[in-house]
């Protein structure tokens, strides 16, 4: 069976004199797995996710998404990436953003799905507002709806819980559960224990290297999340 995500010798160095942001890294994530990526600030989580999404060029190594070469059209169709610092168009409302992203991905019946998404995340009243004017938490919620409006086989999410209120966190956890139920793969970089305790696999990064890779039950999650 083809892995949902396969990384081979993935490396990122910003300069020859400095320690690499990501040491040569091999990783396979099976289809349908829920993976939490943990590690202290600067451990390489965001670098890993950005390279997987195709937003950052690796210094070396290969990325394959559902068997397709990273960055290829098929890989982009299969992968949805939610960045830690979402960006929006200045002149489009949330509804227009949702329509745009959905249609770019070939989703024609976007309207009902968009309504369901904003209802679930708590943005019903803000659908016709400009997301660039939102607060940090609302921006995060808007970005989540954009990540979910399109079909995907693999969802990469970077620190999605930051800035969310309790209701937002609960809604997001529920959405992640739905993703798993439908067989899609989930890789989330986070420090949120409530999520980390619900995953199938925990990967801890430190100084660009994998320090732990296994089930969360087999280790002291607290130590890994907060002291890795």
């Amino acid at each position: 069976m083809v892995a949902a995500l396969s990384l081979r010798g993935l490396t990122k160095s910003y300069s020859a004199s400095e320690q690499p942001a990501l040491a040569p890294l091999d990783l396979d994530v099976e289809s349908g797995q829920r993976v939490a990526l943990v590690g202290h600030n600067g451990s390489g989580k965001t670098t890993l996710l950005r390279m997987t999404a195709g937003l950052l060029e690796p210094s070396d190594g290969e990325v394959h998404v559902s068997g397709h070469s990273g960055g290829s059209t098929a890989a982009r169709a299969a992968l949805s990436y939610l960045a830690d610092n979402p960006t929006f168009y200045d002149d489009l409302s949330l509804r227009e953003h949702l329509e745009y992203v959905a249609r770019l991905h070939g989703v024609s019946d976007w309207s009902a799905r968009a309504q369901a998404l904003v209802d679930q995340i708590g943005l019903t009243d803000r659908l016709d507002d400009l997301p660039n004017t939102f607060s940090r938490g609302l921006r995060q919620k808007a970005a989540i709806t954009l990540g979910f409006i399109r079909p995907f086989k693999l969802l990469l999410v970077d620190e999605p819980f930051v800035g969310l209120d309790a209701a937002g966190k609960a809604a997001l956890l529920e959405m992640f559960d739905d993703v798993s139920k439908r067989g899609a793969t989930l890789v989330v970089a986070t420090h949120e224990l409530s999520f980390v305790q619900r995953v199938d696999r925990l990967i801890a990064l430190a100084e660009g290297q994998i320090r732990y890779d296994g089930a969360p039950g087999d280790t002291d999650v607290n130590t890994l999340v907060f002291h890795t």
């Binding site: 169709a77 070939g106 799905r113 979910f148 079909p151 439908r182 067989g183 899609a184």
Partner: peptide
Amino acid sequence: SALPTEAEESAAPPAPPASTGMAA
């Protein structure tokens, strides 16, 4: 459900025709 249905997911092609996205 806010998410694509299973039928939609399984029916979703690896990549929609490029013309669809370009039209959008």
